[in-house]
Design a binder for these strands. Structure first.
Length: 342
DNA sequence: AAGCAGTACAACCGCAAGAAG
DNA sequence: ACTTCTTGCGGTTGTACTGCT
């Protein structure tokens, strides 16, 4: 009973692959496909076990692999995904085209983990290791609240991911017998994990009891403190809700008048818009001429601590002045959200 | 130039689980 | 129902490279 070893380990080479071995493996697979990995080494004239061949192929020789330095955009995505998925490298890799789980794992362990440490962030929890914001009691409370909300959102998103993963694996297994076993949730349609967290966060805020006061967008109610976070909306980017109604419109307004730069609590964006006390992503972009995300940008002002998964959204997105992500990628991000994957 | 430590990346190992016989 | 095969996955180790003393 039990599994047999992947190879007999006698007379087989281990360690770094030579260019000759690579060439043998590559040319064999190009001609015949890999077939059964166990039988491949003998057929290809390699003194390696099948498992080693498979690893070499999937992590290095495969033609659809992008090698080389990770872009800042990719790094940001890895951090965001890791905040959501933890060490599920294959799941993370599924969201980074042409990158292997092994490469991402190595990059995380050798670069990103250390970088987060230096920034005072615990890479396993994605939370600040210590309070970097001084000693004000009020600030401390706000931060604790912020962290608690973030954690709550994260857990909710994670549980949702698990639910969706189970659901889709049932669907996919019934629809395709070719699909091999995998812990990775199916990728189509792509639902951005960041958005999951945003949604979860929405739920967190929505669960509080809104009251009407002079903040038309956001009122955290009694159970949750207002976040310390605010977002700045640039001039000409955001038509004034004050000129229309107390609730943001969900329809596009090409002739919308704009108000000058304003400061909005993060909750204004993350709480439910149609309910009247906050805005959804659709609501926000609905205010821009032609629903065009190019028309807007926002930048982080005092989101503290900034959850890493939000960085793509609040740190320099849309070519904002604070530097940050690539404009085109951010636009794709947002357009995918607005095209109904939400 | 040699030795050493740190870093980056490739590769290995063992486990889990579905497929196949 | 059971065993074996096969593949995928994540953690860990090994090795080559680089920079410093």
């Amino acid at each position: 009973m039990g599994r047999s070893p992947c190879c007999d380990k006698v007379g087989l080479r281990k360690g770094t692959w030579t260019p000759e071995e690579d060439q043998k493996l590559l040319s064999y697979i190009q001609q015949h496909g890999h077939g059964s990995w166990r039988s491949l080494p003998a057929k290809a004239g390699l003194q390696r076990c099948g498992k080693s061949c498979r690893l070499r192929w999937t992590n290095y020789l495969r033609p659809d692999i992008k090698r080389g330095k990770f872009s800042s955009q990719e790094e940001q995505k890895i951090i965001q995904l890791h905040a959501l998925l933890g060490n599920r490298w294959s799941a993370i890799a599924a969201h980074l085209p042409k990158r292997t789980d092994n490469e991402i794992k190595n990059h995380w362990n050798t670069h990103l983990k250390k970088r987060l440490h230096k920034m005072g962030i615990d890479p396993s929890t994605h939370k600040p290791k210590t309070n970097p914001f001084g000693s004000g009691q009020q600030r401390d409370n706000a931060n604790l609240s912020h962290i608690a909300q973030w954690e709550s959102a994260r857990l909710e998103a994670e549980s949702r991911l698990v639910r969706e993963s189970k659901l889709s694996s049932v669907q996919s297994s019934s629809s395709s017998s070719m699909r091999k076993t995998s812990k990775v949730p199916p990728l189509q349609p792509i639902v951005l994990p960041c958005l999951d967290v945003l949604k979860a966060w929405q739920g967190t805020w929505k669960s509080s009891t809104p009251t009407s006061n002079n903040n038309r967008f956001f009122n955290p109610g009694k159970n949750l403190q207002s976040p310390t976070s605010t977002l700045h909306f640039s001039e000409n980017a955001f038509p004034s809700p004050a000129t229309t109604s107390t609730t943001p419109t969900t329809t596009n307004n090409n002739n919308a008048t704009c108000f000058g730069e304003t400061t909005m609590p993060l909750g204004a964006i993350l709480t439910n818009g149609n309910g009247g006390n906050g805005m959804q992503l659709n609501d926000i972009v609905g205010h821009y001429p032609n629903n065009n995300v190019d028309a807007a940008y926002f930048e982080e002002s005092s989101l503290t601590p900034a959850p890493s998964f939000l960085e793509g959204f609040v740190d320099g997105s849309f070519g904002g002045s604070s530097g940050g992500g690539d404009l085109e990628d951010n636009k794709k991000y947002w357009n995918s959200i607005l095209n109904g994957e939400t």
